[in-house]
Every structure is written in structure tokens, then in C-alpha cells.
Design a binder for these strands. Structure first.
Lengths: 241, 241
DNA sequence: CGCGACATTGAAGTCACTCAAGTAAAGTGG
DNA sequence: CCACTTTACTTGAGTGACTTCAATGTCGCG
């Protein structure tokens, strides 16, 4: 179950054999969430660290009057609660967008491993920096990109993140968000997301149906979305045919 | 010069005496930037880590067609290039918004210190997590808050960040951004920032003139901006009279 | 079959943008 | 010390991208 974590960490920084062995030796319990739901954070043990191994989740933030902003998308390989692990405090609100598999590792075991393997500390720290990098790029999207650019950008980003952990199927990949959730992620209204998706279909750039996206022309989509790639810090830019 | 860094790290996580001594013993060279300028990143040595000790800076990102998004504001005590230190790669574009004082510490010295002081690693890691937290809150602002809420929110945030390092003067604090830079930070147009500031003045909530802000009613402003405070992870919420 | 969730469409409205002047303040040079 | 330039701020008018509201359509499922 931790192979995925190893793969994920190595996609950003190299590890050596001892590091890998240490990670693979961590005790893991796997948790299953059967389907979509909000407010998942409370169900995660506060003395374990959790890695998403399957499915889609998101972090979100609700304003007092009900407005919701989706802050980030979590895909297989993402560590869910490093912030709590390092800084303590509460976990940010979390929602399952599909059935999930979550690996839970006791904090204590990871602490022990980090004492002997400084490179892993650095690799984990890196993943938080990359999350931040993505978060900043979303800021650019919402702040400066038009609706169609935002959607195009998000699709490029998600595609590459999934491809980096092998969860794509050629140019097709799962994206189990409703249009209204896309709207909350992109800072748009549901109606406008709908029209924007139609425009992208009309341009023959994508198909999107029942939670599956297909990209017909990644390069054109990337150009349209002013997508630039470096911010994902992938060591081997998984670029598809 | 590193007292400020100590203060900053302690504002989020406790350190012990040995940690403080180690930090204060780091060799430091101080760099002065005489005034406002973009594209500062290139002038910072790639084998030193830099801490802003005085003045205001910002990270930004330009899109190919010239649109600029300001990604974050850096104030005294902020570490500038932890990402490079941990993850390598390029520093994100940086601009000086005022004359700056920057402390430069050799990477090697800090690496050496971190080997003996794991708590400092954790404290530094924390600062990157808090930066991310702020970045996410900006995402919420731009995604879901109205123009006046955004401005109010930014003012509350900046006030508390400055107060945490003692760079406020009662309810007054420096904010050396032009309205056009505020616009680039908030995802608004210059014209609209102007009108929004006028509205805030009309409501008797703020004064803002030649780079100095005064808050007449922090609580009212916080309420207007849907500002919630926890995301700054301050151990001692510096709340002013 | 009928319900519920999601997607789609149309129409009307608005918040914030763009364009275009005009004013104010501060620096520059002769 | 005063024209001249530059930079920032302010104001008005018109526009447009996106929103809101309100139906209607479609699909999967018990």
C-alpha cells in the first residue's frame, strides 16, 4: 500500500534503497470510504497520517453564508494530513468525491522513520511545497484566467497529476466532479461551467461525460489554458502521445 | 539579524534554548535593496537562504500576455526561498515593494544546523505550511469574496501578520502597494480597487494614504471581510486595542 | 414508472471591467 | 524656481463576462 507513496515521493525527489525499504516497512491499515460525502476530516484518526491510495477527494472551505470554495483536489498518492502531522491543529475540511481507499500510518512510526532517514523528511516537505505550488497556480487561474482558460487549465493539471501515478487511460481519466463542484473549484457559477464545457466540446478539445474526461488535443488545451507545467515539479514530465 | 527569524518561528511553534542559540549563531550577511523593483529573484545567491528582515516584497506570476497575478506578500520575518532550499529549481519571481533588508545565510550552515536540531526543521517546514494556508485563503477570497470583502480581508490579514512581528504602529501599518498592485493581488481592476477603497473610507473603516493604512474598526472590518484568523496559525493572536 | 440528481437552456440582471479623461503629487532638468 | 514628465489616483460612461432565476430535459435507479 505504501508503494504508491514511494512512487509519489520519487516523482519529485530521488530516494535511495534504504529510504524505500523504510517506507515499505511502515505499518499500514487501509480505510475504505464507500462513496461521496463531505466532512470527512472528523473520521480520520488524529494520531495517524493518511495517504489517499484510491479515488478523488477535495479540501474545501465554507464561508459563513454558505459560499463554498474548493481549495484543492486530492488524487492517489497525495498525503492528506501532513499539516496536522507537522503543525498540529485541525485538519482542513475534506470531502470524498468518489469511493476512497486511504492508507493510515501511525504518526509514531513515521516519526521514528524520519529520525533515521532525513531524505524522507525532505521528500515529504517537498510534497507540501508542491501542493502549495498548485494552490498558487489556482490563484492565478481564478485571479487572472477567463472561464474557458480556467477549465482548460484544470483539465491539463489533473490529467498530468493522474498520469504521474498511472491513473490515466491514455488521454482519458476520471474526474468525478459535478459541474457544480467544478464551479466551486474554479470560482464560477454552475451555469457558466456548463456553457464553458459546451464551448470546449464544440472546439473538439474534450469529451466529459459521467465523470470521465477525454482530452482530444492536450497541446491545444494547454495553450488555451495558458498551462505551463513546471509548477507541478514532475521529474519525468509524463507527456502522452 | 536572526533574532527576527527566531521570533517568527516561535510565533508558530515553541523552540528551546539550544534551538535559539543555534539560529542566532548562523553566519549572516545583510543585503540592501534600495527601492521598488521587479525581478529580484535573479539577484539572490542560489546557495544562500534569504530572510526578509525589513520592508515589503511580493511573489508574482506573469501570464504570457502580460496579465500579472500577485501570489503572496512577504513581510519582515518571512523566509524567501525555502522552496529552492528544499526542492531545488528556480525561485519564483519576486518584487521589492519598498526598500528591503534581506539576511542571507549560507545553505550549508543551515543544513548543518538542521542535522542537530530537528525542531528547527519542523519550524521551518511549518512556515511553508502557513504560507500555503495563506495562499489558500487568498484562493477563497478571489474565488468567493466580493470586491469589498477581499480588500477588507487583505487588510485584516496584513495587519495581523505585521503585528505578529511588531511592525505595526497601533492600528496603523505600512502597505506600500499601489492601487494597481492591490488590483493584481486581489484579482480586480485598478479602477474597481479605487472605488472599493473609497467605499471603505466612506464607511469610516479605514484610511489609506501614501502607503500607510489605518484601521478604525478592526472587528467591523473583519466581519465585513469574513475574516477568521485561525488560518494564520498564530500562537498568540496579536489582537490590538 | 416516477423520483432525484444532474445537466442544459433562456432571459434578465449586475458586478466589475475597459476605455477615456482629467486631476494631483512628486521628481527632473534647465 | 518653473516648465516638463512621470506616476498614481479619481471620475464617468458604456460594455461585457459571468451571475441569478426559473424552467425544462435527461438519465440512472429503486
Amino acid at each position: 500500500m505504501t508503494e504508491l507513496l514511494v512512487a509519489r515521493l520519487q516523482s519529485h525527489l530521488p530516494l535511495d534503497q534504504a529510504d524505500r525499504t523504510g517506507l515499505l516497512g511502515l505499518p499500514v491499515r487501509v480505510l475504505r470510504i464507500p462513496g461521496r460525502r463531505s466532512d470527512l476530516a472528523g473520521t480520520l484518526a488524529r494520531d495517524h497520517i493518511h495517504v489517499l491510495v484510491d479515488g478523488f477527494a477535495c479540501r474545501y472551505r465554507d464561508l459563513p453564508d454558505g459560499r463554498r470554495q474548493i481549495i484543492s483536489l486530492l488524487v492517489a498518492g497525495d498525503v492528506i494530513d501532513l499539516r496536522r502531522f507537522v503543525l498540529g491543529g485541525e485538519l482542513s475540511p475534506l470531502a470524498a468525491l468518489s469511493p476512497l481507499g486511504i492508507a493510515a500510518i501511525p504518526d509514531a512510526s513515521l516519526f521514528a522513520l524520519l529520525e533515521t532517514a532525513p531524505r524522507i523528511t525532505r521528500a515529504l516537505w517537498s510534497t507540501t511545497l508542491i501542493e502549495e505550488s498548485i494552490s498558487r497556480e489556482w490563484l492565478v487561474s481564478i485571479g487572472k484566467r477567463s472561464a474557458i482558460e480556467r477549465v482548460a487549465h484544470l483539465l491539463c493539471e489533473t490529467y498530468l497529476r493522474l498520469a504521474a501515478v498511472g491513473r490515466n487511460d491514455g488521454h482519458r481519466f476520471p474526474l468525478p466532479l459535478t459541474q457544480s463542484e467544478l464551479a466551486d473549484a474554479l470560482g464560477l457559477s454552475t451555469v457558466h461551467v456548463n456553457r464553458t464545457l459546451q464551448e470546449l466540446r464544440r472546439l473538439n478539445l474534450i469529451a466529459f461525460h459521467s465523470g470521465i474526461v477525454e482530452l482530444f488535443d492536450f497541446d491545444a488545451l494547454a495553450q488555451l489554458g495558458l498551462f505551463s507545467l513546471q509548477y507541478l515539479h514532475l521529474r519525468v514530465p509524463a507527456r502522452p502521445r
